[in-house]
Structures are given as structure tokens and as C-alpha cells.
């Protein structure tokens, strides 16, 4: 057990294998559910590709798990602003995702101008800016600009929500 625990330590990539396995199983399960009446005009049917894809995913899941347990590791992506020397900073990512979710919840009810402001302001805050007022003004300006830009320039009416009638 301890050896298993020590082998699992630092092997978060097994989660990827688990995900691949889950998706593969899901695809296969969904494909098995399809009823395929034999038809002359479509000998392959809708089942064939899902079966192949599901199989591919399951094989990849198993091989990846083996690979990871043997010490293989995926290469994290580098970039201009990416500093891989420190571990993932969840204190930034989670509030960022929070701002994103707030926008999803707000957009249809409160409208884009409000939800977009919340999204940008929240994201900037999550990413470490602490100029509350300046950021708020920039957020509001961006949301308003895009609202009118899309409406007047592209003919796309983003939801006005609570501010219906004012905008």
C-alpha cells in the first residue's frame, strides 16, 4: 500500500489518463445505445466511428497510465509570460474562473454591460491589479463600448438585461 501511495505521489497526470478513460467509456457506452437498422445505403452506420474513437481513447488512457507510472511526464507548455519554476497558482486561477462563472450567471439576467464589467474587473483583480477605481472605469468603458460596437457596428444585440431602456 505504501509503495502504491509513493508511486502515486506526484503523479497527478494519472488524472489525465482517468479522464481519457472516462471519455472513452462514455463514447463507447453512448455508441452501444444507438440502434442501427441495417441499410444498404449506409453499411458503416453511425456506430462505427464512435466505437473506434472510444477504443482509441481507452487505449490511450491505459498506455498513458502505464507511461506515467513508469516515470513519464508531459511537458508543460512554455510561453512569454509563463514562469514554470513556481507551481500552479490557484489563488489566481480560481478567482478568475469565479469571475467567468459570475458572467455566465449574470449575462442573461443583468445584461452584458453589467456582467462584462464584472468579468473584466474581476479578472483584472484576480490577476493582481489593485487599482480598484481605474480598473472599474476601464471595465465599464469596455463593456459599454463593446455593447454599442456590436449593436451599431455588427448588428448583434447583446442582452441589455437590467439596464433595458436605459441603454
Amino acid at each position: 500500500m505504501t509503495s502504491l501511495a509513493s508511486r502515486l505521489k506526484g503523479r497527478s497526470e494519472l488524472g489525465v489518463a482517468a479522464l481519457l478513460g472516462a471519455v472513452g467509456a462514455l463514447v463507447l457506452f453512448d455508441a452501444a445505445r444507438l440502434v442501427v437498422p441495417y441499410s444498404q445505403s449506409d453499411p458503416v452506420g453511425p456506430k462505427a466511428l464512435p466505437m473506434i474513437v472510444g477504443g482509441l481513447l481507452l487505449i490511450c488512457a491505459v498506455l498513458l497510465a502505464v507511461n506515467v507510472l513508469r516515470g513519464g511526464r508531459g511537458e508543460a507548455e512554455a510561453g512569454e509570460d509563463v514562469d514554470l519554476t513556481h507551481p500552479a497558482d490557484w489563488k489566481t486561477v480560481l478567482p478568475l474562473a469565479g469571475a467567468f462563472i459570475a458572467n455566465i450567471l449574470l449575462i442573461d439576467w443583468a445584461g452584458w454591460v453589467i456582467s462584462g464589467t464584472v468579468l473584466f474587473w474581476g479578472s483584472v483583480w484576480a490577476l493582481g491589479s489593485r487599482h480598484y477605481v481605474r480598473d472599474g472605469l476601464i471595465s465599464l468603458a469596455l463593456a459599454l463600448l463593446t455593447f454599442y460596437g456590436f449593436y451599431l457596428g455588427l448588428g448583434i444585440a447583446l442582452p441589455a438585461g437590467l439596464l433595458e431602456g436605459i441603454l
Binding site: F100, L119, F120, S123, L127, S129, L142, T146, L158
Partner: peptide
């Protein structure tokens, strides 16, 4: 400033 850059990417992606 990076906060604006990446907040902007999320903002425009959403939009």
C-alpha cells in the same frame, strides 16, 4: 500590464 492583457483575452473570448 499583464492583468489587463489576460483579463482582456477572457473578456473578448467570452464576448
Amino acid at each position: 500590464p499583464r492583468p489587463y492583457l489576460y483579463a482582456g483575452i477572457l473578456f473578448f473570448a467570452t464576448l
